[in-house]
């Protein structure tokens, strides 16, 4: 009985030993197209998420980028001013747009 108990304890103890210390998520430096408005992207977007999260949405319309930016304000409560939202949208459409307004 004692032996059985010991085995049970060992079994439980064997879990949770796979990571030594804190995990660290690597930082990725994305190739970013520099241009007018990038400062606003850096200040307003990259606070919360990577540049990869933006560019891997694929090239999109102006309307798409405007709505995404608006979503960040309305649903995710990002403190982006109206003026900055416009600048961010222009930048994204110019460098990561599909050429279509809608």
């Amino acid at each position: 009985m004692k032996k059985l108990l010991l085995i049970a304890i060992l079994f439980v103890g064997s879990l949770f030993a796979q990571v030594k210390g804190d995990v660290e998520v690597p930082y990725i430096s994305y190739q970013i197209k520099m241009g007018k408005g990038f400062d606003a992207v850096q200040a307003n977007c990259l606070m919360c998420h990577s540049f990869g999260y933006i560019i891997n949405q694929g090239p999109q319309s102006r309307d798409f980028w405007a709505k995404k930016t608006e979503k960040m304000v309305t649903h995710f409560k990002a403190p982006i001013t109206k003026e900055d939202a416009e600048i961010v949208t222009d930048y994204l459409f110019k460098y990561y747009g599909n050429g279509k307004i809608k």
Partner: peptide
């Protein structure tokens, strides 16, 4: 070529949040 914690290198879209 960059491996995330406990992972082999995978197709990588974003580091924050990890995708």
């Amino acid at each position: 070529n960059m491996a995330f914690p406990e992972k082999r290198p995978l197709i990588t879209y974003s580091d924050r949040p990890p995708l």
